[in-house]
Write a protein that binds this DNA or RNA. Structure first.
Lengths: 338, 338
DNA sequence: ATGAAAGCGCTAACAC
DNA sequence: GTGTTAGCGCTTTCAT
């Protein structure tokens, strides 16, 4: 069975291609009866317009790209869900790309998008680079862009992120309130503004509470690599922390494993809190205290901003800059020690 | 900045469009020097071919669709990763669609794909329907298809799934070996062959061990809905099981919560084993025994089959039918009772 | 109210 | 080797 085209419909109906096209788009100039006939046959043969041909004329693909570091990650898969929700409503299609935290892959992807494959891009940048030329080029070629979560501070685009500073401040303060004095901060990457915010909050809490601010208590991990558990174990043994503030879920999971190995009791020996959207955090042993970013909302908000921009419903005053609140949930991993 | 087209390049170089096109595809008929000049300029201006125009000529989009019930699900997000891995290698692009277990959405999606948007489709069908006309229509219009995990038995397409019967048999046998006699089976949906396999294995184990085969010990949940915890609680209270065999992770999580509420100890009062790809299963309280399907492998294998089919590297003998082995991991939730 | 024809950017058959 | 031309399926002037 061949695909049904306008031409087919036209010849079957004894009409011209252009009439059929107009009938299907409900043009006011077309006779009501004709419209009915056309639509009936289109329905019957299940005519589906060829999106590529339409694009070539209109330069609108009704497709956006979603560029993220990793799909199998609770945070990002919730973001995807949010994006899909909005795009489905507005009949946009979503192309998902993974960078695996690799700058080169990110460049390859954005180059690929230059050809005019998509109307816009939602991106959470990789954590390894601060060079944004490839992003600028996309924007220059009129591909709309909205950044989310991992945003580039000095880049001209709308941005949606979470309240990294405030929620980190609350998280570390919670540890201090539980009596912790030797708090490690485990970072994922050095270049992201999100990480800078979290680190700043960490030190500010220490300062506010007159606790020593020791830079050697901060350790940075390369997000694209497996966590080096041996290395982390050494670090923990050496620093003898009474708490760990993790900036990503994977680090907290690693800490759980290490504490189990070392026979350290959570929370009596060490308390742990982490950024995470893990839905079974309450069922862990012990249940894990989390700072949960509003991933689904971030996805929805970023998608809405992007589609508005694509459709010209632009904000009068330049770019949006939205911070959405995270939720801090205190569970047993930061319970008072016995 | 306008997008760079072949026309631009051609006029800048004083060549015809077709020469430029051929130079870029490394046609043997083009002068080496010319090729160099063309490629240099293309590089300089970062020329990216318009994929829509190319498609319109060649009817090859180098894009496939991946249709799954849910993205934020450990199993499916690993499948996505597998698919992406293969497709990235071969320079194919992946369009991800979610059905949310909704038959109508699935039809809407497949209709959308009829227009010629993709060269092929990877699908894990929704669990609510047994009508495959919409899938047949896609295939009829020459869109290649490979089914994975949730396959339709009597549909003509290559299929990749896991060893549902064998792994279920092993899982239920494990419970019986631990001394369990009142084992509940919690199903997700009634229409999928995967569920039939799992159910058959469940009853076969009971029969083999001369345990009563009581159909009222099987309960079916609608996968698209939130689990009704009250209802499930009643069921557990009424049946007084000593073990629960869950066919999806969400059900096991629900059981954990219920046992916590009822003050039932896992594994002493009730043992639990479930199909799941949860990577923190070992850290739950108690650690959760799982049957883990090879999600990443399933994704890779299905993608390979599909791309081969698209590129005409067809299997001589019709369709592939591959079953990949799951891994059963025995943890504390099925530990011997004290 | 309908049709004819041009053109989106690209490829490929056919000249020369 | 390179240019000319037609056409993929669609939308959109411009005619009628």
């Amino acid at each position: 069975m061949k695909n049904v085209t306008l031409k087919h419909l036209a010849s079957k109906l004894g009409l011209s291609v252009s009439t059929v096209s107009r009938a299907l788009t409900d043009s006011y100039e077309i006779n009501v009866e004709t419209k009915k006939r056309v639509k009936a046959l289109a329905e019957e043969l299940n005519y589906q317009p060829n999106p590529f041909a339409a694009f070539l004329r209109k330069h609108i693909s009704k497709t956006i790209a979603l560029i993220i570091p990793e799909i199998s990650n609770n945070f990002f898969s919730l973001v995807i869900k949010g994006v899909e929700t909005i795009c489905a409503e507005k009949d946009y299609y979503v192309l998902i790309y993974e960078t695996h935290e690799d700058y080169k892959k990110e460049v390859r992807i954005t180059n690929h998008l230059i050809g005019g494959r998509v109307d816009g891009v939602l991106i959470s940048v990789n954590s390894e680079s601060d060079n944004c030329q490839h992003l600028q080029e996309l924007v220059d070629r009129n591909v709309k862009m909205v950044m989310f979560d991992r945003v580039v501070e000095n880049f001209n685009a709308s941005k949606v992120y979470s309240d990294d500073y405030d929620s980190s401040f609350a998280g570390v303060s919670h540890l201090v309130n539980r009596g912790c004095k030797r708090i490690l901060f485990l970072k994922a990457g050095d270049k992201l503004s999100t990480m800078h915010q979290r680190e700043k909050a960490y030190f500010d809490v220490l300062e506010k509470n007159n606790l020593p601010k020791d830079p050697s208590f901060v350790k940075s991990f390369v997000p694209s690599k497996e966590i080096d558990l041996e290395d982390l174990t050494k670090f923990i043994v050496e620093k003898k922390p009474d708490a760990i503030f993790c900036s990503v879920e994977r680090l907290a999971i690693g800490c759980y494993d290490i504490c189990n190995n070392l026979g350290l009791n959570i929370p009596n020996d060490i308390k742990i809190i982490t950024f995470s959207c893990l839905n079974v955090a309450r069922l862990l042993n012990p249940s894990l205290s989390t700072i949960s970013q509003p991933a689904f909302e971030i996805g929805k908000t970023a998608a809405r901003l992007l589609l508005d921009e694509i459709e010209g419903k632009n904000l009068a005053d330049g770019f949006a800059n939205l911070s959405l609140p995270s939720t801090i949930i205190k569970r047993d991993s930061t319970r008072k020690s016995l």
